[in-house]
Amino acid sequence: MLRYIARRVLVMLPTLFLISLASFFIIQLPPGDFLTTYAAGMGAQDAIVAREHLAALEERYGLNQPFHVQYWQWISNIVCCGDFGQSFEWRRPVSSLIWDRLTLTMLLAVVSTLFMWFVAFLIGTYTAVRQYSIGDYFWTFVGFVGLAIPNFLLALVLMYISFRYFGQSVGGLFSPEYQNAPWSIGKLWDLFQHMWIPVIVIATAGAAGTIRIMRANLLDELHRPYTTTARAKGMQEWRLIAKYPVRLALNPFISTVGWTLPTLISGEIIVSVVLDLPTTGPLLLRALRSQDMYLAGSFILMLGVLTLIGTLLSDILLAWLDPRIQYDKVGSR
């Protein structure tokens, strides 16, 4: 198992490198030197201080150097000291801005993944076992509709419904009294009460796909010879389905994390903008609009890295569930 994990991490490294490169490329994208933007923002009143400060910054980020040197400065500062650079709009280190928001984004993504799995597992199993029943057609249709509704639209509709019929505004993740309060049981509970709309909205995006995967896998497995073997043993039908085909259909299902996690995080970004959640989305959007590129680049870097880690975790879970993978009996997927 350890060897498998080590190999898996090794394969991840080039991707990690590419992600950091892409993030840095994005930082460099806006035309002109970002210091110009920065200087313009500082105004003329403290021009002298600014000039010194600018020179220091130029040194710090190696702005006059070629791309690869700048990249090296940037990435080595992140890796060694957790220094993501400076946010010019907020005039604070990026690291002081992103962690809270990234944590909440990941929390939302994880809760949504679990919720999505739970729903997709139930519906997928039901529709496969009852293939061609009315329920099967109904859920398949619902899945298609779920796939067709952009999640920001769903968020808007749910917001409207709760505004119209429950008379409450559903923006944000915390009630005002907990907004700036330190973490406590009460705050956690408050968070979970606010989370259901974003979780439902985010999960819907991935659920349609995962339901189909679960259904197709289970349909495959239901006709495999080993189910007949189990039936020939005299097992009860439902127990047999739960122990063999469902168990085997679960593996490709788990591996869907690889592609659902990026989708879910994408969904989270948009939904959090619509619902104005204190997560990555609104801040990233704002940073991009104001070309606060270190902040934006760091968000993108970290979102990519966290997605990779999520995928890695799901691969490890998969290897643990399916002994064939560790022994390398399953070809590269």
Partner: peptide
């Protein structure tokens, strides 16, 4: 699907199949 035939399966009449690889669950 009844209990009676299930009781006979595997206990009074057992069956083995052609392909032992696919007739056994690969993850158990």
């Amino acid at each position: 699907k009844g209990a009676e035939i299930r009781d006979i399966r595997g206990r009074d009449i057992a069956m083995i199949f052609q392909e032992p690889m696919t007739s056994l669950s690969p993850v158990h």
